[in-house]
Amino acid sequence: MDKSGKKNRREFLFTASYTVGAVGLGATIWPFIDQMNPDSSVKALATTEVDISQIEPGKAITVLWRGKPVFVKRRTPEEIADAKKVKLESLKHPEKDEDRVKKEEWLVMLGICTHLGCVPLSNKGEYNGWFCPCHGSHYDTSGRIRKGPAPTNMEVPKYEFVDNNTIKIG
């Protein structure tokens, strides 16, 4: 074998060694990074059932789901009408009210401001929906962002009506 062949073989061995070493290092580091992700016990608490029979029109309750507050609001006809008559073009994050509810009387959404995660106050703000005290975001009666630094509407979680008086979140 000539000299250049030997050199190529050596370079191949170097590259192969580095590659195996890098993959091994990555595989070793990964458990130390992934241990910080939600553990099995946190993931296990993924659904919450809520009794909504006691909620009067115009009132809302806040329940905890995955450690996060969820607003369950029974809206009045005026609030529903308010939410429906808004022109989509005037919204920062255009979503129809119909797409945000399953039954129009019930608004279920994460009570977390999409700016930096504070809990907005209900029946406050310039749109009679929610107002976030931290950095001044205003939401309407459909939980849509109307004014302030929050980029998107309050998130609607996955939920379903188990029966007329119970919803299951998650």
Binding site: I33, N37, P38, D39, V42
Partner: peptide, 28 residues
Amino acid sequence: TVITNLFSAIPLVGESIVTWLWGGYSVD
């Protein structure tokens, strides 16, 4: 909550980073 949520502003991976920082779906 507010400070860790700063990272949620990062496009695409922001939410995953925040969940990773929290070790859950909220500060706990």
